[in-house]
Design a protein around this nucleic acid. Sequence first.
DNA 1: CAAACTGATACTATATTGGTGTCAGTAAAA
DNA 2: TTTTACTGACACCAATATAGTATCAGTTTG
Lengths: 140, 140
Amino acid sequence: MKLLTKNTDYAVRALVKIAQRAGEPVPASLIAKEERIPYAYLRRLLNDLRDRKVLRSTEGKGGGFVLGRKPEEIFLTDVMEVFQGEVNLTECMFRQKICHNRSTCVLRHKIREIEKKVLGDLEGISIGTLLNETKGQKND
Amino acid sequence: MKLLTKNTDYAVRALVKIAQRAGEPVPASLIAKEERIPYAYLRRLLNDLRDRKVLRSTEGKGGGFVLGRKPEEIFLTDVMEVFQGEVNLTECMFRQKICHNRSTCVLRHKIREIEKKVLGDLEGISIGTLLNETKGQKND
DNA sequence: CAAACTGATACTATATTGGTGTCAGTAAAA
DNA sequence: TTTTACTGACACCAATATAGTATCAGTTTG
Ligand code: FES
Ligand code: FES
């Protein structure tokens, strides 16, 4: 079982890349090359992020993508939601049968607790966090 | 993003069913009918659980499946591992690039923390737990 | 022997995920 | 004003994972 799919991974790496160039438009072609992400695929991911206002884009020569908001305000959960749907661990495991009354189901509540914790913890991770993480690395 | 796949869901429901018949062999056909799980598919799931010693089986007429150990000792995580692979949230998100040194990576550690919590919490849920949950329900 | 089961395994269908290809439009700059 | 470097939109295909089927052999009860 994995928490992050490949497109989330790609997207996050792209976002970090864009963040590093603070403000200057970064073309998809550059990201694709440096991060070794298939160009056409990346294009789609970036467009999705733009639709969700995580990125803004400028067209034409010299154009590219910039962050739609501050790195500290772009959370891992945001990216996950775009590409993997809302993080919703319940709804409803053990359909029918096991629990006759969903509203009073103890198990459901337990799982929901877990879910809350996970979400809370994930929200502690933003592009800002990752940016610091990469500081001081040689930029091959 | 969902935590449990359909086969885990099926399997858990089957395990609860078997647990309810404390010790008496329960045939796959019965479970399939009562839980409305495709028979042939269920068969395979039960065989997997038997291979993993979660169930024991007796062949021939009157045969079926019984639990391989006490309900309180069969955890949700056990079932998840059988059907969804080990719960491993990291390994390694953000391959290459973002983190130059995996061993010191802060992010990795963070995620690993989350993972530990989730696993810990999930381990609080066993077939025993679910059995209590279903007590007092009408057994349609 | 028939009936009611499991063991084993090969196969198919469907959904999700990952990846391509094409064409039109925009902006910079030669 | 044409070329170059970019995005927008969208249809399509490939690979993989998940869900479900089908078949036949073997075991136990009666
Ligand atoms: S887990 Fe679904 S209602 Fe209890
Ligand atoms: S997240 Fe993979 S090494 Fe940091």
